[in-house]
């Protein structure tokens, strides 16, 4: 199994190498990067390309490691036992009240699966440590039913992080790591081509120039990212804005139309407008 990129996702050679290393050596791949550079998309695309089912586990601050394995639904067992009736048999077997988590589903699947553990840094600081053995050996023990769950096929694990918490060393040592850097203009062109195949060359060229210039503006709190560029292009197309409107020849600087799609922060918009104003008057 090898991942070679897909026609909806542009992967740089270094990213491809990291993904293939993770697939071949069956170790988790930890992915970091600026928001909007396609960390979550990657798992979906790899799953698609390999034809493997994708199991997603989105982490919140309250998520416990145990929830990825299984949960014992004591409340419904209690309810069943108090109501009695024809469910009487069901109550006797504790296995009826074990709810399988994402990892369990992946381990017992008949073919290799792709697991996405999304935004692992949102969880409690102990969360990665609680999953060490499970991710390493791909097996765990169910205490309620005295049962050992073992992987039929080792799943391919993708983990994304936004750097909100440091991950423990022991956990990091077991992963491959890749930092998705912000695409250069060449890669960006490929990405846009993939998403908008019919886009006029002139519009794309002007738009990319404006976009990268905007990223260069110092002091922006949130730099526009790939996903924002794609949104903006979608808007430009929908509004049928001609390429010339992005940059008028006589004035070097202008506020690009629909810039609200690129700058999401009120202060950033303000700063940007001030800079444009200054540039116009200093000429």
């Amino acid at each position: 199994m090898r991942f070679e990129g897909s026609n909806t996702y542009v992967a740089t050679p270094d990213l491809m190498l990291a993904v293939n290393a993770a697939i071949t050596l069956q170790r988790p791949l930890l992915i970091k990067g600026e928001p909007g550079t396609g960390k979550t998309m990657l798992a979906e695309e790899v799953a698609n390309a390999l034809g493997a089912p994708l199991l997603q586990w989105h982490i919140k601050s309250t998520t416990k490691a145990q929830q990825g394995l299984y949960e014992y639904d004591a409340v419904s067992r209690l309810r069943d036992s108090q109501l009695g009736g024809k469910d009487g048999e069901r109550v006797r077997d504790i296995a009826n009240y074990i709810v399988k988590g994402v990892l369990w589903q992946a381990l017992e699947a008949d073919k290799p699966t792709v697991i996405l553990i999304d935004e692992i840094d949102k969880a409690d600081i102990e969360f990665p440590n609680d999953l060490l053995r499970e991710l390493d050996r791909m097996e765990f023990y169910v205490y309620e039913t005295q049962q050992l769950v073992k992987a039929k096929h080792r799943p391919i694990v993708f983990i994304t992080s936004n750097n909100e918490k440091e991950l423990p060393d022991a956990f990091l040592r077991r992963c491959f790591f890749h930092y998705i850097k912000f695409p250069d203009s060449e890669t960006m062109q490929k990405i846009v081509d993939v998403h908008f195949p019919g886009l006029k060359k002139a519009l794309l060229k002007e738009a990319l120039e404006v976009f990268f210039e905007l990223r260069e503006v110092p002091g922006l709190k949130k730099k526009p990212s790939t996903s924002e560029l794609l949104d903006w292009l979608k808007l430009l197309l929908a509004e049928e804005i001609p390429p010339e409107a992005l940059r008028s020849k006589d004035r070097k600087v202008a506020v690009p139309p629909l810039h609200g799609a690129l700058l999401k922060n009120e202060q950033d918009v303000h700063l940007f407008e001030r800079l444009v104003f200054m540039a116009k008057h200093n000429r």
């Binding site: 270094d14 190498l17 990291a18 991950l167 992963c175 491959f176 930092y179």
Partner: peptide, 16 residues
């Protein structure tokens, strides 16, 4: 060597 660079980085470095 490029490939080796990327591979060793993915294996050995865990923080950007």
């Amino acid at each position: 060597l490029d490939d080796f660079y990327f591979l060793s980085r993915a294996c050995l470095v865990k923080d950007e």
